[in-house]
């Protein structure tokens, strides 16, 4: 009897009490946004305030525009040729320690920003190196057979050439259009397609923000939200801009599952051009609401230097990663301050 009880207690003790670490490491301290201090002998798991470096670099993506291989046709039309390769086997660390199978155009989510001028001939050499069928479907005006819906491109090296005249002026998404469509989109097969007007817009510090979500546990609810894929990235790595310079943001909402997304800018208002198709702004606001693939152009300048948040005012999204900071300086050469202290 005693023996049995001893055995039972012994076994339960093994299960019940947390395993004690062999190596008691030194204490680490971390400070939360509201100033709470925690000392721990363990590890800090904090995607919110601890900066981390990922394979995908949202800072590089932010201002990277691809104009293609440019050539001129006999009739004087500019032809811009792009090669886009689809893959679906990549495992990407999307947030510290979280690994997710992304489907990519040219290896990244979002895919490369394709930038052309209205009237250009756009030629896309599309290669599907994935294990599933994929296509490229551009929003914009083009012939039906260039729509990337019925012309399914087979896996493991299937090819298709999309060719159309760029238009209309504005900012548009492109994405895979193979069914089940939601699956192909949420895994990351999308990107931004910018059509510049023939008469160029006013010079500005231009950037692209794709608002997206990641459903890492496949329950049709997003576990993470972000501007440009990596949650909290621009909070850890503020976007540096200078005072009184025109900032132009091409923003595209690719969030699935949630009916809306939005964008709120702190300490400022912006001129907003829905879809970027008009030269006159429709709103002067600090808050726009975007449905799926809804997009537009934001233009603003900051007068005062400092740190300004931008984030979804659907706060759930910002608390899951869709939040960033503009670090406004009088002069970019002044000492860089990328490490932000919280709680002070």
């Amino acid at each position: 009897m005693v023996l049995i009880l001893l055995v039972i207690f012994g076994i339960s003790a093994v299960f019940v009490f947390p395993t004690i670490s062999e190596a008691a490491s030194e204490e680490k301290i971390f400070v939360t946004h509201s100033g709470g201090v925690i000392k721990t002998t363990g590890e800090i798991i904090d995607p919110v305030y601890v900066a981390s470096t990922m394979e995908f670099d949202p800072m590089k993506y932010l201002r990277e525009f691809n104009y293609g291989d440019v050539s001129e046709l006999p009739d004087g039309t500019v032809m811009r040729e792009f090669t886009i390769i689809a893959e679906d086997d990549k495992i990407l660390e999307v947030s510290p320690g979280v690994f997710y199978n992304v489907w990519t155009f040219n290896g990244t989510v979002p895919g490369p920003t394709i930038r052309v001028t209205e009237g250009d001939l756009v030629k896309i050499n599309f290669i599907n190196n994935g294990s599933k069928e994929h296509t490229m479907h551009f929003h914009g005006i083009h012939p039906a057979e260039m729509d990337g819906v019925f012309e399914i491109v087979g896996s493991d090296g299937g090819r298709f050439t999309y060719e159309f005249e760029a238009g209309p002026v504005g900012v548009h998404p492109y994405h895979c259009h193979v069914m089940p469509l939601e699956e192909h989109i949420v895994h990351g097969l999308y990107g931004v397609f910018i059509v510049d007007p023939k008469e160029a817009r006013e010079p500005a510090d231009e950037m692209v923000m794709v608002l997206n979500g990641l459903d890492t546990d496949f329950d049709t609810e997003n576990n993470f939200y972000a501007a440009n894929t990596i949650p909290f990235y621009y909070q850890h790595h503020p976007i540096q801009i200078i005072t009184n310079e025109l900032i132009r943001v091409y923003v595209v909402n690719m969030v699935e599952f949630d009916p809306i997304n939005n964008l709120h800018l702190h300490g400022n208002l912006y001129h907003y051009y829905p879809t970027g198709t008009d030269t006159v702004p429709s709103f002067y606001t600090d808050m726009i609401t975007l449905s799926q693939t809804e997009r537009g152009i934001m233009e603003f300048e900051y007068t005062y230097p400092g740190k300004y948040l931008f984030h979804a005012h659907k706060v759930e999204f910002s608390e899951k990663g869709w939040v960033g900071i503009f670090l406004v300086k009088d002069d970019l050469t002044q000492e860089s301050q990328t490490e932000l202290e919280y709680g002070n």
Binding site: T19, I20, A24, T40, I44, V48, P231, E319, G321
Partner: peptide
């Protein structure tokens, strides 16, 4: 809502 945390050990 994502929160910073520590995990021990």
């Amino acid at each position: 809502r994502i929160q910073p945390a520590a995990i021990e050990p």
